[in-house]
Design a protein around this nucleic acid. Sequence first.
DNA 1: CCATAATAGTGTAGTATATACACTATTATG
DNA 2: CATAATAGTGTATATACTACACTATTATGG
Lengths: 238, 238
Amino acid sequence: MDAHENSLRRAYSYEYPHPAVTVDCAIFGLDEGKLKLLLIQRDLEPFAGAWALPGGFVKLDEDLETAARRELEEETGVKRVFIDQVGAFGEPGRDPRERVITVAWWAIVNLFEHPVKADTDARNAAWFAVDELPALAFDHRTILDAALARLRDTIRREPLAFEFLPRKLTLTQLQRFYETVLGEAFDKRNFRKKALSYGILTELEEYEVDVAHRAARLYRFDKTAWEKLRKAGGSFSI
Amino acid sequence: MDAHENSLRRAYSYEYPHPAVTVDCAIFGLDEGKLKLLLIQRDLEPFAGAWALPGGFVKLDEDLETAARRELEEETGVKRVFIDQVGAFGEPGRDPRERVITVAWWAIVNLFEHPVKADTDARNAAWFAVDELPALAFDHRTILDAALARLRDTIRREPLAFEFLPRKLTLTQLQRFYETVLGEAFDKRNFRKKALSYGILTELEEYEVDVAHRAARLYRFDKTAWEKLRKAGGSFSI
DNA sequence: CCATAATAGTGTAGTATATACACTATTATG
DNA sequence: CATAATAGTGTATATACTACACTATTATGG
């Protein structure tokens, strides 16, 4: 077979049997100071009983991101959250039944607003700490590792924390978020200095309520300031 | 349709018609101090006459990376070069004929060692400067923009320049490489200081030959030192 | 052989950024 | 009113980044 025959220059793809295409989602959440991952337990072969990333087939008229969002919403009830593509995984043997190419996505959702819609509708779902995961089905361990690397890289350079945290937040909440996701501790004074240095946090004249200690000042993420900064070639990095 | 019906928990995918899956390659090269992109001109509809990224169908028993390497080799004759995935692109209307999901890859090849195997085997191929591209077929402009961003981001953080440059290289060659790919100029002294600061370049007792001016010292990329540095948690950044 | 053209090679001062580090302030509770 | 719990603050040092200009070497051509 020469170059031409496998080319899109051919008008149709008769002689190319098509693989199945799925989306899989690495859905992260924060809970008890730990970064957790939502998994579902398979009840059918292959890998019956094993835990897997939630996922499913892409419909023929459905965008890849739409498919991923549908899966995400089915599993967690979360809409309109930030999601990002990890990439495509398609080793021929990754699903023993047939050729399946999967497009993986990652998202981070708020476990307080969306408390484990897991264990509903008869399928067994649960949150696991990312450093205490069970063996995963298919090549999901590989996918997860890539998703985790992407999450950590992205979260450092984009102000996505504010998509996840409440609109009015304390600097300590922000610090905890980064510490949990990145798995490392930051110095309090240095963290605050840096977080405020970008000018994208507005200091409010409001404070925490109902806390059994000195109330912390609240801040609001200033999206306009961030867009202005970005347009001016500025960047963000924690 | 509820969550279950679109889930991989089903053993088979009967009721899900499969999309076609292709790979497309953004193949970059350096020539005359410019970053160039290899394009092929389509001779069939849709987009007959338009320029497009080289690509083709993924075979049912073929890994995604293998398919991308096959395309790359068909177009340029280059084997064993570094390639990296950009991601999957799959908007339902991106190919007017049928649903086609494409997995995009980028690579950078040496135009001196592989001088435009373009224009062979009857298909029209050519290198274009990335800042003077013609209109591209399908959504290839979107794919290219993503590939270019990925190339520039990756090249700054990984010592891939040495995959591209000769084994024995001068610091000026290295600097030109980065300037061409990133499209910005660097200060000579600062660049050299930084490049040497990682300890991954071995100073050789050899110099350029056959140059009509003072001969530059040659250096060799020390892969072992780089792996040691990386293991120690170190990083690289130009 | 000497002037020219072309590129190699080198150091320092100033600025900005990152790090390390410990105490006082406020509030609810018992 | 003592305690527990967290908020909030500054400075000194080290490291990294930036800006900047001249001398060295070699081939070539008159």
